[in-house]
């Protein structure tokens, strides 16, 4: 079955860890993930400026590794990302900001990509709140 997974909370929220464990189980069961869509505070997971204490799980790093290993389509909502300070090179230049911080493996795009994913998929599972 084809899934879209949306992540709506920051990387330290329990729901973002739950989303990752769920996504891993989706692939392990032989299902397909059409797209992972990061929206609202979920876009913060795609920042490469996160520094996590050594005795804590780095869920953002684990998400990034999972996306890379499985060559997943990881889309970060551009409007939600800009207002939370997550910028790629193009946007950093456009708005005259010093640094781009979108982690490798993620792409900024519009909400249309969420709807496009839903049209291709059969299930949407969202992980937000706590």
């Amino acid at each position: 079955m084809k899934f879209v997974i949306s992540v709506l909370s920051s990387s330290h929220a329990p729901s973002t860890r739950r989303a990752l464990r769920f996504a891993q189980a989706v692939l392990a069961a032989g299902h397909e993930i059409i797209r992972v869509f990061f929206y609202q505070d979920g876009v913060l997971t795609a920042s490469n400026n996160l520094v996590v204490a050594q005795d804590q799980q780095d869920i953002a790093q684990q998400w990034q590794a999972f996306i890379a290993e499985n060559e997943l389509d990881a889309v970060v909502c551009i409007a939600a990302a800009l207002r939370r300070g997550v910028l790629d090179q193009t946007e950093a230049q456009r708005y005259g900001r010093e640094a781009a911080n979108l982690a490798e493996g993620y792409q900024l795009s519009g909400l249309g990509q969420l709807h496009d994913g839903l049209q291709q998929a059969e299930r949407l599972i969202s992980f937000g709140g706590q």
């Binding site: 609202q40 519009g110 249309g112 969420l114």
Partner: peptide, 18 residues
């Protein structure tokens, strides 16, 4: 911003005629 971001999902669907 949560309510506005929810509405944006609706506006995006409308823009794609979904």
């Amino acid at each position: 911003i949560a309510a506005a971001e929810a509405l944006d999902i609706a506006l995006a669907a409308g823009a794609f005629d979904l």
